[in-house]
């Protein structure tokens, strides 16, 4: 006996619309990545790489900078730009771009290798990440999302618990099973929320420092106050990683190696995370 037949029931317009939308989403889901990946290698990138191969490092560096400006940052582009700057003799800019590449791909051994070579060339000590630093930097971007998922689940469980009988009858599930499920989410979710929240805050604290690379030729003057006429108390070598503490007009108060403090001009430094300095309000 046939209870249901496609032909026996005329298709309603809403159902047809939903079916069309579903098919479109399915196609986009599978096709779009291919379309995006197809753009992964193109003429501009080839041009930049060919200039590098031909030894025209300045031209290659400019081409990679243009690519980053138009397409965005990627570990590969920053890595290639770092290579070009190294070969062009701009060790500070090279270290800056390797640091950016390492920020995007903390566990990439090639990036770390070239970065350490550039640092060695600049006369700086190695600064490879330790395993826990790599782990923290990999986990860190996802912790916030996990916290949000955790919060969403807790909220849903709370609402569901309040309307268990209605939900149970709608889903045809035993109310006791539903209630046990919701309580389980609470018992697991609340401690997890606090744990992940703590991890999130720790990770933010760990990476919240605004770090910059000295890009001044050879070395940058470190002054005791943020004025050009101020006395120089030392210098920071090109390529050195410093932490910005304060800003006053075009000067940043930075902490260098060995807790060496002083003011450095903005033009002598670039932030690893581009535009970070803009977020620092003038003092």
């Amino acid at each position: 006996m046939e209870f249901f037949s496609l032909h026996s029931w005329p298709e309603r317009p809403v159902t047809a619309l939903l079916r069309s939308l579903g098919l479109t989403a399915l196609i986009l889901f599978f096709i779009l990545p291919s379309v995006l990946l197809a753009d992964n290698s193109d003429a501009d990138l080839d041009t930049a790489n060919r200039a590098y191969t031909a030894g025209r490092y300045e031209e290659s560096a400019k081409a990679f900078q243009q690519l980053i400006a138009t397409r965005g940052y990627s570990a590969s582009l920053c890595f290639n730009l770092g290579n070009a700057e190294t070969k062009a003799g701009h060790v500070g800019l090279a270290i800056l771009n390797y640091e950016r590449a390492r920020y995007l791909a903390p566990a990439d051994p090639d990036i770390d290798h070239n970065l350490q070579l550039a640092r060695k060339q600049a006369g700086l000590d190695p600064n490879s990440y330790r395993w826990w630093e790599i782990a923290l930097r990999i986990i860190y971007p996802f912790v916030g999302y996990i916290v949000m998922v955790c919060l969403l689940l807790l909220t849903l469980a709370l609402i569901g618990n309040a309307y268990t009988p209605t939900l149970a009858s709608a889903c045809k599930i035993s109310p006791s099973i539903l209630r046990t499920g919701f309580r389980g989410i609470f018992f697991v979710g609340i401690p997890l929320f606090f744990l992940l929240g703590f991890m999130e805050l720790s990770a933010i604290g760990f990476t919240n420092r605004i770090e910059g690379i000295v890009i001044a030729n050879k070395e940058a003057a470190l002054r005791i106050s943020p004025f050009e006429s101020a006395e120089t108390v030392g210098s920071i070598p090109e390529g050195e990683l410093v932490t910005v503490e304060q800003r006053h007009n075009d000067y940043f108060r930075i902490e260098g190696r060995n807790h060496h403090y002083g003011w450095i001009q903005q033009k002598d430094m670039e932030p690893i995370i581009a535009a970070s300095f803009d977020a620092k309000s003038p003092n």
């Binding site: 992964n40 940052y73 890595f79 860190y140 916030g144």
Partner: peptide, 21 residues
């Protein structure tokens, strides 16, 4: 002591390096 050569692809692109937080 040689540099690891260039990558040939773009890799995963990001419009900004600013962390999500």
């Amino acid at each position: 002591s040689e540099l690891v050569p260039n990558r040939l692809g773009f890799g995963s692109l990001h419009q900004s390096l600013a962390p999500v937080y």
